[in-house]
Amino acid sequence: MSPCRVFLVDDHALFRAGVKAELANLGDERIEVVGEAGSVNEAIVRIGADPPDVVLLDVHMPDGGGRAVLDQLHPTLPGVVFLALSVSDAAEDVINVIRGGARGYVTKTISGRELADAIVRVAAGDAVFSPRLAGFVLDAFSDKPSAASVSDPELDLLSPREREVLRLLARGYTYKEIAAELFISVKTVETHASSVLRKTQMSNRHALSRWATERRLV
């Protein structure tokens, strides 16, 4: 299997260098950093010219940030997977990039090993939930008495199993630990996570967007 081709987008050159060094030091042959960009426009041009497998996308950049890159590239390059990487943790940013098409969200404090695992996982088509993202999604889909805003139960509600998986993700469990906890296969956990991600991206649930803009969590 050829290595996963990774492209870095971050306006801080120091951070790009740090991630590159960290990924290189792991000696992980599953991952190869093939390029980097320091601005939204540069990213759009370079990724469009030579699409990588996974784009590590900074959320906060001048000229629209990660969302601008996603809006430009995601519709035209469905084969490229975006993994958002940020220091922000503000709910609206997190939900915003996920709804823009990112397959996962991790914070910049993540260790190199975990980052590599997350890259491989999104490259394989899975979703990557940090505990915080899982918490945000749970909160956004909470069963508060707001039934009027549920227009499409298929998209606007989480199944009990999905809720359970999300709760364990928020508690810091890995997919493997969740599988063991719930007596299901890792594949099933991945399916649930992807389904939650799809709902987060597609749901027109009124509460979701409003929740994300109103809530400013640390």
Binding site: R132, L138, S142, R167, A170
Partner: peptide
């Protein structure tokens, strides 16, 4: 150490 509290509700 690092502690990341996540709170729902």
């Amino acid at each position: 150490i690092t502690i990341e509290p996540v709170v729902v509700g």
